[in-house]
């Protein structure tokens, strides 16, 4: 029988252990799929953020910001940028309509809040499906252990009434039972690695977003002052 040495424990494992093995297998498939998806997402987010920040440092003009957001759609900073610009446009028009141009810097906290809302949404998106990895990390070893304990229990129950319970009688059953623990750990270890890696990445991007928010806030404050003073000059000239 080919492959007997490797697959024999799986075939001898019993229904309960088989169900656990299937669950672990599915968990493994899903967590690797999450890994593949997230690694691409984070890589693109990182590189585009870097490029965006480089461009941002060159041209800190408010007029160019909307251009930037079209260039780097995958960067998590872009939603902040668009949210800020939208908020700015809407509120500015509102203020102009009510002839309160000199108080434009009252808008700045609103813009900051809009950016923070966008940031939390973006972060949520970045961290989506990471909870599954955390759950896998926690649950897979326990599931494996459950299968093993059940297998050992089965082995000992089958020994009931045996006259000479030797180690050789118990060993095959226990070695079959241990398969689920091995599988549980095989599933949990990569999931733990992925989870911690992605959470670290998300934290990095979060820090990046915070810095970006404060920077943009400064820019908008300046812009507000500039527009207000321009308006004041206009009214003075009149």
């Amino acid at each position: 029988m080919a492959g007997q040495s490797f697959f024999a424990p799986f075939l001898n494992a019993g229904l309960f252990a088989l169900i656990i093995l299937i669950i672990l297998f599915l968990m493994s498939i899903i967590s690797w799929a999450i890994f593949f998806r997230k690694i691409r997402q984070f890589r693109r987010a990182r590189s585009q953020t870097r490029a965006l920040l480089e461009n941002f440092n060159i041209r800190r003009e408010l007029t160019n910001l909307s251009e930037l957001s079209k260039l780097f759609p995958a960067s998590p900073l872009v939603p902040l940028l668009t949210a800020a610009i939208e908020e700015w446009q809407v509120l500015k028009n509102e203020f102009f309509n009510h002839n309160r141009e000199d108080n434009l810097n009252l808008l700045v906290p609103n813009i900051t809040e809009a950016m923070e809302r966008a940031a939390s949404r973006t972060l949520e998106q970045l961290e989506s499906s990471l909870p599954f990895l955390a759950i896998t990390t926690m649950v897979a070893p326990f599931l494996g252990l459950l299968g093993t304990v059940q297998g050992v229990l089965r082995t000992f129950l089958s020994l009931r009434g045996a006259q000479l319970p030797t180690l050789q009688l118990i060993a095959p059953g226990i070695s079959d039972a241990l398969v689920t623990t091995v599988m549980g750990l095989l599933v949990a270890i990569p999931a733990a690695l992925f989870y911690n890696y992605f959470v670290g990445q998300a934290r990095n991007l979060e820090g990046e977003m915070d810095r970006f928010i404060s920077e943009l806030t400064g820019i908008f404050r300046l812009e507000a002052c500039r527009v207000s003073s321009l308006e004041n000059q206009d009214t003075d000239a009149k």
Partner: peptide
């Protein structure tokens, strides 16, 4: 797509181990 890739990878590893141990 990722699920498919992951599933194919798992099956591939299983087949590989099976053949190797065979």
């Amino acid at each position: 797509r990722e699920l498919l890739i992951s599933f194919a990878g798992h099956i591939g590893i299983l087949i590989f181990i099976g053949i190797a141990s065979g």
